[in-house]
Design a binder for these strands. Sequence first.
DNA 1: TTACAATTATTGTATATACAAATGTATGTT
DNA 2: AACATACATTTGTATATACAATAATTGTAA
Lengths: 148, 148
Amino acid sequence: MNVEEIIKTEKKIPLPSRTIIHLSLVANKINEIITCSLKAYEMSLEQFNVLRILRGQKGKPANLSTLNERMITKMSNTTRLVDKLILKGFVDRSICPSNRRKVEIRITKPGEEILLELDKAMQKAEERILNNLNTKDLEELNKLLDKF
Amino acid sequence: MNVEEIIKTEKKIPLPSRTIIHLSLVANKINEIITCSLKAYEMSLEQFNVLRILRGQKGKPANLSTLNERMITKMSNTTRLVDKLILKGFVDRSICPSNRRKVEIRITKPGEEILLELDKAMQKAEERILNNLNTKDLEELNKLLDKF
DNA sequence: TTACAATTATTGTATATACAAATGTATGTT
DNA sequence: AACATACATTTGTATATACAATAATTGTAA
């Protein structure tokens, strides 16, 4: 993860551009490590996020729009994402009785169980990602990221 | 870009996880803004990066492996990425005479010209992205990102 | 209440990407 | 020279994603 090497190709990249490139590189690294950890469970990062959101609902079902707001994905993908989780038995979907346009998506027992496994894998991944940063670093980083 | 809203769904997300989520969100926002700016030129972020790398070569051709090292994409995509840039006339490709396994990829005049346009669009995008951060913020952020 | 607009989700399709296998070229060994 | 091996790139294919079009339901205003 050496920005300098990548950056040296263009003569002198100004600080703002450098920061953005730097951020993208770090984000990519993070993404790669996490995706790789999840792959052992045949779970994509997006699927994992859906499961986490559903767990956060504490039994209350979520509809697609809700999932969508909390995620980066586009609506059209969310449908198919949920399809895949249903196939694996980690969530179920039913039509909302009060508004039949909506669907209600819930996490299942097996879904909650796999999520516990995934939590552990995530924690290991995080340790790998953040092993050079201490609490103060993280706090500062959060503060800076808040400005975006 | 309110992390809090996304984060409140799970009870209390510990600082390391929060930081990583936060970073991903910011990276996504950046990606979206930049991609959107480039779309006006029917140029993907990846294509743009290839052009920038080629410009950085200062006339010296790059082969696929070189492009690949400097980018995030996988080799198999780089081939097709370059295909598209050739179609648009922004780069050309020829077989390396000294080692015919290799290819030599060069940016063309039209490629350099469009790149100047793109530079301007990028600068505007950067201003949008970073308008809440001052130089000191950027320096600190870079310092922290270096730790990854 | 009927017609029209808005909401919610799904599907079709084109494009992008990942991964593995294949191609063509070069190098080393016997 | 013949063969195996390594290298650089390309291609095939399965999966993922984006965007637009469609379907189904509900809200609303004349």
